Amino acid sequence: MPKISCSVNNCHYWSSGNVCDASQILVTSDSMSKSQAQTVDAPMAGSISATPVNSSAETCCKTFVAKGSAQKTDDGVTRQ
């Protein structure tokens, strides 16, 4: 997997050096993210419709899970 940079250090997948250690991620449009449950994540990417945007400001990462959260295994994404 390519190196993914992330500065959200309260995420379960965040690693020192601002690196995302998630086994997979889902980046989608802000509008799609707001309309879906928190549990819609990377393992479901193949069933999600395309969500075109006009700029990076309209995108978000759906793979966020707070550090220490009991929900860190809900979506099947793991730390590498």
Rank of each mutant, 00 (worst) to 15 (best):
S47E: 14
V53I: 15
T63K: 02
Q24A: 15
V19F: 02
I25K: 01
G68W: 08
N9T: 13
D41N: 12
V40R: 00
Q71R: 10
P43N: 07
P43G: 05
A42S: 12
E58G: 09
Q24M: 15
L26P: 01
E58S: 08
S56Y: 10
L26K: 04
D41T: 08
A70M: 11
C6F: 04
D74C: 03
P52V: 03
C20F: 10
T39F: 08
V53P: 06
S29R: 02
C6K: 02
C61R: 09
A22Y: 05
S5I: 11
S55P: 05
K3P: 03
S35R: 07
Y13D: 02
G68H: 04
R79P: 00
L26V: 03
T39S: 11
V65C: 01
S23N: 09
K62Y: 01
V27L: 09
Q36T: 15
T78A: 07
A37C: 10
C20P: 07
S47N: 12
K72M: 12
L26W: 03
N9Q: 13
V27E: 07
M32N: 11
V27W: 01
K72I: 14
N18Y: 03
W14G: 00
V53A: 09
V8I: 14
T59Q: 08
S47A: 12
V77D: 01
Q71C: 06
Q36Y: 13
C60H: 02
A45P: 05
P43C: 07
T51W: 07
S47F: 14
A70N: 12
T73S: 07
G17L: 08
P43S: 06
M32S: 09
S7L: 05
D74V: 15
T51R: 01
S7G: 08
C6T: 03
H12I: 13
V77F: 00
V77L: 00
S23G: 12
V65L: 00
C20Q: 09
C20V: 12
D30C: 13
T63D: 02
T73Y: 08
S29W: 03
V19P: 00
S7N: 13
A42G: 01
A66Q: 14
Q80L: 14
C61Q: 10
Q24H: 07
C20K: 02
S5Q: 13
T78Y: 05
Y13V: 03
H12A: 07
V65P: 03
V40M: 10
A22E: 00
I4P: 04
V19N: 04
T39H: 00
N54K: 15
S33I: 03
P52K: 05
S23C: 08
G17W: 05
